[in-house]
Design a protein around this nucleic acid. Sequence first.
DNA 1: CGCGTGACTCAGG
DNA 2: TCCTGAGCCACGC
Length: 125
Amino acid sequence: LKKTTDFTRQVIKIIRQIPEGRVATYGQIAKLAGRPNASRGVVWILHSSSETFSLPWHRVLNSKGQIGLPKGSAGHRRQCQLLRAEGVEVTPDGRLDLDIFQWKKKSAVKKKTAAARPRGPTMFS
DNA sequence: CGCGTGACTCAGG
DNA sequence: TCCTGAGCCACGC
């Protein structure tokens, strides 16, 4: 990226605001940058300048809370490592719980196991 | 102005 | 949960 457009600038700025130990999704960044549907644009920017702008790129994941890079790739491993170094719990395959680690969301301190997770709203309605 | 690329996302089945 | 298809967007050429 030689030139920076408004969108790009916004994206860069926003990513830099993600605090340590928290993560954001491509879509979330796009929305904050004023383009709710430009998640792919965010991807492009990261793809072409993650290191160049010294961004905390490892804090950006897809909407499912998974690392976007291909499993097994060097980048994937590096991202896992960087996240864990910040205290983020990442599964071996690169997934984490957005309910707990997503930026601008009160983390659910409670640990929820897949087996114990409530099924629906029925129990409280 | 159009086309290909990319670490996407959402709704369905 | 996984797989598809369609929609979306910023760039570089």
